[in-house]
Amino acid sequence: MPQKYMLIFHGGFYDDLSPEEAQKQMNKWFAWVDKLRNQGKYQSGEPLLPGGKILSHKKGKIVIDGPFAESKESVAGFFVIETSGLDEAVEISKEYPDFHLGGKVEVREVMKIEVPE
């Protein structure tokens, strides 16, 4: 049974890239996405802006804060892919293009919502 995974991309620091390097980096992303699409594994994905807010609950009040994470750690985007299992999802994540720019991939299985008969 195919199973959905979310690949959560943390960080990946682009600021020091020259235009030429940025274009090369982008081509790597295109190649990766194209491959996953052609294999029918790519489901969806979105980039996220840095910043934002974090809401929590303290002493009966909603507190709105800041983002806490360093921008180089924060989530830069995500893919949802469909694979045969965790091993394949991890294999796919090895092709993430931003490792050398300090990026990390978190691989999480999307929970199937079971509807009892």
Binding site: Y14, L17, A22, F30
Partner: peptide
């Protein structure tokens, strides 16, 4: 312009060129 290029790098992989 540098910022715009970086923005492209962040967006185009998801949105297409």
């Amino acid at each position: 312009v540098q910022e715009a290029l970086l923005k492209a790098l962040q967006q185009w992989p998801y949105s297409g060129i």
